[in-house]
Amino acid sequence: MVRKSDLPQKTCPVCQRPFSWRKKWESVWDEVIYCSKRCRGEAKKG
């Protein structure tokens, strides 16, 4: 079992918070930029 602290992390460019790898992002981890739909929307606004 892998601990959450051992998973890869990225920093969201909108809110500047770190977010961890998720199983649903397994095949697209290189393409994931934002931590949430909210941050994606904020980035497109301005």
Rank of each mutant, 00 (worst) to 15 (best):
K44Y: 11
Y34G: 01
W25C: 02
V2L: 15
C39Y: 03
E42D: 10
V14G: 03
S36N: 04
V14L: 06
K44A: 14
P18M: 14
R40W: 09
L7D: 00
Q9H: 14
Y34N: 03
I33D: 03
E31P: 01
D30S: 07
R17Q: 15
S27V: 04
D30N: 08
I33T: 14
R40F: 10
P8C: 01
Q9N: 10
K45Q: 12
S27C: 04
R40M: 08
R3H: 09
G41L: 14
E26K: 12
T11A: 14
S5I: 12
P13H: 07
W21A: 00
R3A: 04
K44Q: 13
E42P: 02
C35E: 04
R38E: 13
I33A: 03
R38M: 05
E31A: 09
T11W: 06
E26R: 11
L7R: 01
V14S: 09
M1S: 15
Q9P: 05
K45S: 14
Y34V: 01
K24Y: 09
V28W: 00
R22F: 05
A43L: 01
D6Y: 02
S36T: 05
P18H: 15
W25K: 00
D6F: 03
V2C: 06
K24P: 03
F19N: 04
S36I: 03
K45E: 08
P13W: 08
Q16P: 05
V28Y: 02
K10H: 05
W25D: 13
S36Q: 03
K45L: 10
F19M: 07
S27A: 09
C15T: 06
V2K: 14
D6G: 02
C39D: 04
W25P: 00
I33Q: 09
V28L: 06
V32E: 03
W21Y: 14
Q9M: 14
S27N: 10
T11Y: 08
P8D: 05
G41C: 10
A43N: 06
S36C: 07
R38Y: 08
G46C: 09
K45W: 09
R38I: 06
I33F: 00
R40V: 07
R17V: 07
K24F: 08
P18A: 14
V2G: 07
Y34C: 01
K4S: 11
K37S: 13
L7C: 03
K24H: 11
V32T: 02
R17L: 13
S27E: 12
R22E: 10
R38N: 11
L7N: 00
D30H: 05
R40Q: 10
K4I: 09
P18E: 15
R22S: 08
W29R: 02
G46M: 08
S20W: 04
E31W: 04
I33W: 00
K4T: 12
S36Y: 02
W29A: 01
C15F: 08
P18N: 15
G46N: 14
Y34S: 01
V28H: 08
A43G: 02
R17K: 15
S20Q: 10
G41H: 11
E42M: 14
F19D: 02
T11D: 13
V2T: 15
R17W: 08
V28D: 09
P18V: 13
C12F: 07
G46L: 12
E42V: 08
L7S: 00
I33P: 01
R38W: 08
V2M: 13
W29G: 01
V32N: 01
E26N: 13
S27Y: 06
K23Q: 09
C35F: 01
D6T: 02
